[in-house]
Amino acid sequence: MANELTIPLLPCPSIDEITSFYEMLGFEVTYRQTRPNPHVAVRREDINLHFFGMDDYDPAQSYSTCLVIVEDTGELFEAFAAGMRSVHGKLLISGIPRMTRPRLRNDRYTGFTVVDPGGNWIRIHKAAQEPEARTKLAKAVENAARLADAKGDERQALRILEGALARTDGSEPELRDAQAYRDELVERITGSGSRPGA
């Protein structure tokens, strides 16, 4: 068989709130029903996401997630960020909803994460690429991103990043990005917070 299509169906407390959030990111509604079961489908180019409403659903306790593989994470991030800034005046980096910035996740992917109002983690990754040599600071940023952005453990990520920054000689090309990420982690920890795990 060929040309199969898989679309995640993710939970949320309100399809209205989910719809507004994804429209802010440039998605369009392709299907919507309120009865007998709340259900909404959104699409942005080839990215399709479907959501179902659940009474008494707690987004902070969500373990729902999906991967979206794209050619250019930077372009998509900038489009999402522009939508967020137009509605909220800033990039939401703490609490629910929020979005992380694109970072090296491992030797093969770069990406960012959108945590929507339903607490669903939409993980945007770049298609496979050849690994390249990295500095110790780059590896620390990767480890911190894995802990904070993929698992929700901002405090341990901050410890790793601060340790690596304390050992830097200042010549690493990713120094400014690492410092900016440290500042973002501090804001996420002291802001409205995020659920542990995921």
Rank of each mutant, 00 (worst) to 15 (best):
residue 176 R to Q: 14
residue 80 F to S: 11
residue 18 I to E: 09
residue 168 T to H: 01
residue 105 R to M: 11
residue 92 L to N: 03
residue 166 A to W: 00
residue 116 D to A: 09
residue 55 D to E: 15
residue 123 R to L: 12
residue 21 F to K: 05
residue 73 T to S: 07
residue 114 V to P: 03
residue 194 S to V: 06
residue 28 E to G: 11
residue 40 V to G: 08
residue 167 R to M: 14
residue 121 W to M: 13
residue 19 T to M: 13
residue 114 V to G: 09
residue 14 S to A: 14
residue 45 E to S: 10
residue 25 L to H: 03
residue 65 T to K: 07
residue 93 I to S: 02
residue 20 S to M: 13
residue 54 M to K: 12
residue 179 Q to K: 13
residue 62 S to Q: 03
residue 4 E to G: 15
residue 26 G to S: 08
residue 128 A to V: 13
residue 4 E to D: 13
residue 11 P to L: 15
residue 25 L to F: 05
residue 63 Y to S: 12
residue 32 R to K: 13
residue 157 A to T: 01
residue 21 F to D: 05
residue 88 H to M: 02
residue 34 T to C: 06
residue 78 E to Y: 03
residue 123 R to G: 06
residue 130 E to Y: 10
residue 165 L to T: 01
residue 86 S to D: 09
residue 69 I to N: 01
residue 56 D to V: 10
residue 70 V to P: 00
residue 87 V to N: 00
residue 143 N to W: 01
residue 86 S to F: 00
residue 156 Q to K: 08
residue 157 A to W: 00
residue 103 R to A: 10
residue 105 R to T: 03
residue 38 P to I: 08
residue 29 V to M: 03
residue 47 I to L: 10
residue 160 I to A: 05
residue 133 A to K: 10
residue 141 V to T: 09
residue 75 E to Q: 13
residue 92 L to V: 02
residue 83 G to F: 02
residue 149 D to K: 01
residue 114 V to I: 15
residue 125 H to C: 08
residue 62 S to M: 06
residue 132 E to F: 15
residue 173 P to C: 05
residue 47 I to S: 06
residue 178 A to V: 06
residue 119 G to M: 10
residue 106 N to H: 08
residue 116 D to K: 07
residue 109 Y to V: 12
residue 163 G to E: 08
residue 34 T to M: 12
residue 158 L to C: 04
residue 56 D to T: 09
residue 153 D to M: 04
residue 37 N to A: 15
residue 121 W to F: 14
residue 52 F to S: 14
residue 147 L to P: 01
residue 194 S to F: 04
residue 142 E to P: 01
residue 25 L to Y: 05
residue 169 D to H: 10
residue 160 I to Q: 04
residue 163 G to F: 05
residue 141 V to N: 02
residue 109 Y to I: 15
residue 131 P to Q: 10
residue 73 T to A: 14
residue 185 L to F: 04
residue 160 I to M: 06
residue 124 I to W: 01
residue 97 P to G: 08
residue 154 E to H: 07
residue 63 Y to D: 11
residue 131 P to G: 14
residue 29 V to S: 12
residue 121 W to K: 11
residue 58 D to G: 09
residue 98 R to W: 00
residue 195 R to V: 00
residue 70 V to Y: 06
